[in-house]
């Protein structure tokens, strides 16, 4: 496997039985656990109405700020809303924002980063100056403007976070491509006449999975928390709709922090679980897709 590795690699990837990759993924216990937790989180938030008969916003002022009981698993908040139900429903907002916004920025970033890094020269120069402009732009201004034009809400939040954060993955992917395009196996593929799109997609792209995975898991956490920050500025998801971020942010006074941990801790744990799960899935995916590790 030493000499002629590059052609072997091409051949290997082209045949690339996804079945084998799947096998490698399934043998990674962290990855499988991460996947299971993630699916569970999604199911639990989508299936919230099946798991609790409380709605996210129904209030009961006579039973406010209660500790956990058999009726209220995570207790109630200051106006008697069921924290368990709120945490479940909040998952819908937070998972959507975290995952979709990150996918948007990854898609734009990877696409442009690959083009810039692979073609170099004037294309690189132009794409990267576009990156400079977007990076130089204060995200908050973009958000306030968009929220004004189309109104605040879930879709606005997702789109804005996605549109603002793509330059980082773009620069990451480009930096890998700058090296990749000089590598023999890419040169070889070019020489054999493999079409450009195929080289990028099939031969080069699997090599950037590592940065994409790390960005993905960090980006999901970032997006989930950013959503809460935007709500705080009055332009994100509007109250009383819960999200994990604003459930935690509601505990911004010392007394809630000290005396009512169940009002914020479940949301915090949910974010940690989500991010860890995505990270382990990503790690597993990277190993499974790594073109060098064969069976």
């Amino acid at each position: 496997m030493q000499e002629g590795m590059d052609t072997a690699e091409i051949a290997g990837t082209v045949r690339s039985p996804s079945r084998r990759a799947l096998g490698r993924f399934l043998r990674n216990r962290f990855a499988v656990a991460g996947f299971a937790v993630f699916v569970l989180l999604v199911l639990v938030s989508l299936g919230a109405p099946l798991l609790t008969h409380y709605s996210a916003n129904a209030l009961d002022m006579l039973n406010s700020s209660q500790g956990p009981t058999s009726q209220h698993l995570f207790g109630t908040d200051q106006i008697g809303r069921d924290t368990f139900a709120r945490t479940l429903y909040a998952g819908r907002v937070s998972l959507a924002v975290g995952v979709v916004a990150t996918l948007i920025s990854l898609f734009i970033g990877t696409l442009l980063g690959a083009l810039a890094g692979f073609f170099g020269g004037i294309i690189d120069l132009l794409v990267m100056r576009f990156v400079d402009v977007v990076m130089a732009f204060p995200a908050i201004i973009v958000l306030l403007t968009l929220a004004t034009i189309v109104g605040p809400g879930l879709a606005t939040t997702i789109v804005v976070i996605g549109l603002v954060y793509w330059p980082v993955p773009c620069r990451l992917v480009r930096s890998k491509f700058l090296v990749l395009r000089q590598r023999e196996f890419i040169r070889a593929a070019e020489a054999v006449g493999v079409p450009m799109w195929r080289i990028i997609l099939v031969h080069a792209l699997p090599n950037v999975v590592d940065v994409v995975v790390v960005y993905g898991s960090l980006g999901v956490a970032n997006a989930i928390l950013l959503e809460a920050g935007l709500s705080f500025l009055g332009e994100g998801i509007q109250p009383p709709t819960p999200s994990w971020g604003n459930l935690i942010n509601a505990a911004q006074d010392i007394s809630t922090l000290q005396e009512y941990p169940w009002q914020w801790a479940p949301a915090g744990i949910a974010i940690v679980l989500t991010v860890l799960a995505i990270n382990f899935i990503g790690d597993g995916l990277r190993d499974a897709l790594d073109p060098r590790i064969q069976g």
């Binding site: 956490a221 928390l225 809460a228 920050g229 942010n249 505990a251 974010i271 991010v275 990270n279």
Partner: peptide, 11 residues
């Protein structure tokens, strides 16, 4: 690491 980045910075 993921614990550290999963909490809002202000909080």
């Amino acid at each position: 690491a993921y614990l550290g980045i999963s909490m809002p910075p202000f909080w």
